[in-house]
């Protein structure tokens, strides 16, 4: 891991604004994205500490996925900058951002239907490790995720929840510094959600996480600071209790008749 206190860039000036979990890992300044006339994300100043677990919530169309896509290089921002781990990654292509240490699971499941579960983990780990060690990482993940019996099965043949785990597992195999998960428990049964919470707590020991979720149960289980997006802007950043108690949030989000699914 590189040291954020290394003398570099304007990024330095912001580490002073110390957050709940120490030094800054990720920061955005004035980040915006327009699709033609649609302002999907507007002027977002966001900061994440190293080791932090953050939940991102907000009604449909609030701009959460667009925010994630800019962080991972899938969409170029219209304006603003993204600083990650001491470097400016604004407008960098996805593979470079991934190499710097950001892993992502998109909202829409994206896996390789014709490849086996084992191959998914192997390929994810092999980017940085030799074949032997990548194979070891893959085996370890198969055990950890309870997918060992499905190792040689094509991912296209798996159930929805299992496919989600495969994708989460890939971000783990990457050995990222920051993992972005866009609705990781979508389509999972309650017991699967509980297992995912346990898994992500474990991941959070070594990795920072930002998780977009609609599932309130999941968010209260996972705890952590919650950032609320609304119409492309950050509405509030607080603990879940304070977010729930906030009258503005109740009105635009919870009051909008969509507390969970």
């Amino acid at each position: 891991m590189s040291d954020a206190s290394a003398p570099s860039s304007a990024f330095q000036n912001c580490t002073a604004s110390a957050g709940p979990a120490g030094k800054t890992l990720l920061e955005t300044r004035g980040l915006s994205k327009n699709f033609g006339g649609v302002k999907a994300v507007t002027d977002v100043d966001f900061r994440l500490g190293r080791g932090e677990l953050r939940c991102l919530i907000g009604p449909n169309g609030a701009g959460k996925s667009t925010f994630f896509k800019m962080l991972s290089g899938q969409l170029p921002p219209t304006a603003g900058t993204i600083l990650f781990d001491g470097s400016d990654i604004t407008g960098e292509p996805p593979h470079r951002i991934a190499r710097l240490g950001i892993g992502i699971k998109n909202q829409v499941p994206s896996v390789w239907d014709g490849l086996s579960v084992y191959e998914h983990f192997f390929i994810a780990a092999h980017r940085r490790l030799g074949a032997r060690r990548a194979a070891a990482v893959a085996d370890e993940l198969l055990m950890k995720l309870g997918l060992a019996t499905l190792a040689r099965r094509d991912v296209g043949a798996l159930a929805h929840g299992e496919r989600q785990w495969v994708e989460i597992g890939m971000t783990m195999a990457q050995d990222a510094k920051l993992i972005l998960l866009d609705e990781p428990t979508a389509g999972m049964a309650t017991d699967e959600v509980e297992r995912t919470v346990a898994l992500l707590r474990d991941v959070n020991v070594s990795t920072s996480l930002i998780i977009v979720e609609h599932d309130m149960q999941f968010i209260s289980m996972i705890a952590g600071i919650v950032t609320v997006f609304h119409q492309g802007r950050i509405l509030i950043e607080a603990t879940m209790e304070n977010v729930l108690a906030n009258p503005v949030v109740r009105e635009v989000y919870l009051g909008a008749g969509r507390p969970g699914r």
Binding site: S72, Q74, P93, P94, H95, A98, R99, G103, I104, N106, S110, V111, W112, D113, G114, L115, E119, F122, I123, A124, H126, R127, R128, A131, A134, M170, Q174
Partner: peptide
Amino acid sequence: PFGRVLAAIRENERRVELLGYD
């Protein structure tokens, strides 16, 4: 491994790039 990455590109190129492969 090289061949498996190519197969992965065939299946979903974006996913391959998000893992750090060019």
